[in-house]
């Protein structure tokens, strides 16, 4: 009798241990908080504001996921990660989702065993140089000293670009964006390279942004997006469809201003399905029926978040460009909610 009990307890313990590693959703619910990996500080994307509250394009996604899962956009613990520590932190389950302008590449998806849940910003790598350097194209950079963050795709792109154009350069590896800014402004490197959005965000913090130009060459494709660990497809679905809900909301004209009204019922069945007044999409995800409504209310739809954090009216001043809805000439195109 006693033996059976012990064996039974062991079996249960083994099973629950096996299950615990898989169900991120249960972990998050039990914790009551979403652990979200973000940049150590890139204004516009993820940086603490004057009150210490994390704000920005990537941070807003974290809040949307927290709102969808826990109903509270502030139930997020932001974990600042450098380019070097981000993957280890995600793989070791220190964070539930990584929303840290990370480029979706084959090897990260397949070899590093992560699951990219979509693209929230279509970017490309560019160069920034001081105006008085007199450089108008990246191809004139033969022999230049280039500041670059280590452990990123930009490092490999840079090597490829200079090799393809048969010109030389001197890389200066740096660990964080802030450090790169210091070196660049002191003239310890001639140009600074990272994703074009990051360059714009960095330039916006300069004393005199107009003294610096972003060179016309975009030398790579950098689809940036949030990612989760392999092996928990349910959690991946939640992360993926929260992002899709934000983008679909903009396409369908659901904004934080009219969402309460639309959630009471509308003529558009897709809006009804999205906001949970029709169908049971939330239940399929293992969430409440109003998960998408909560996510959208956290910071607005994709367009609102973009405009608020990095859009043209902000100091960062990024145009929508590729990141406009497909109807407006961009390439944002989410699968239907049905």
């Amino acid at each position: 009798m006693k033996k059976t009990f012990i064996l039974g307890a062991l079996t249960v313990a083994a099973m629950s241990a096996g299950a615990a590693s898989a169900a991120t959703l249960d972990d998050v619910k039990a914790r009551g908080k979403l652990e979200c990996g973000v940049n150590t500080g890139l204004v516009g994307f993820a940086a603490p504001d004057a009150n210490g509250r994390w704000e920005g394009f990537d941070a807003a996604y974290c809040r949307a996921v927290a709102a969808a899962v826990l109903g509270d956009p502030d139930a997020v613990e932001f974990v600042p990660l450098t380019t070097k520590t981000r993957f280890t932190a995600l793989a070791a389950a220190e964070v539930d989702v990584l929303s840290r302008n990370t480029t979706w590449t084959f090897s990260r998806d397949v070899d590093l065993k992560f699951e990219f849940v979509g693209v929230n910003y279509y970017d490309g790598q560019g160069f920034m140089a001081p105006k008085n350097l007199g450089v108008s194209s990246a191809k004139e950079l033969d022999g230049a000293t280039v500041c670059i963050q280590t452990g990123t795709t930009t490092e490999l792109n840079l090597a490829d670009f200079f090799r393809a154009n048969n010109i030389s350069y001197e890389p200066v590896p740096i660990e964080t964006n802030a450090e790169g800014q210091t070196q660049y402004l002191a003239g310890a490197c001639d140009v600074y390279t990272t994703d074009a959005s990051g360059l714009a965000a960095t330039r916006a913090t300069f004393e005199d942004p107009s003294a610096h130009v972003i060179l016309p060459e975009i030398i790579s494709k950098e689809p940036l997006g949030p990612l989760v660990r392999h092996g928990d497809p349910e959690w991946g679905d939640i992360a993926r469809w929260t992002l899709n809900a934000l983008i679909a909301a903009e396409e369908l004209g659901v904004t934080s201003a009219n969402i309460e009204e639309l959630a009471a019922g509308s003529d558009n069945p897709e809006i009804n399905r999205l906001l949970g007044t029709e169908g049971n999409l939330g239940e399929m995800l293992g969430l409440e029926a109003d998960w998408a409504k909560n996510a959208i209310m956290a910071g607005g739809n994709y367009g609102e978040i973009f405009a608020k954090t990095i859009g043209e009216s902000t100091p960062i001043g990024l145009a929508r460009g590729l990141n406009a809805q497909w109807k407006d000439g961009g390439i944002l195109y989410v699968p239907p909610f049905r």
């Binding site: 070097k84 993957f87 280890t88 793989a91 090897s107 070899d111 280590t150 452990g151 490092e155």
Partner: peptide
């Protein structure tokens, strides 16, 4: 540093 990051072989 870089090799670890590019290959994911911590």
């Amino acid at each position: 540093g870089i090799t670890l990051n590019q290959t994911g072989r911590e």
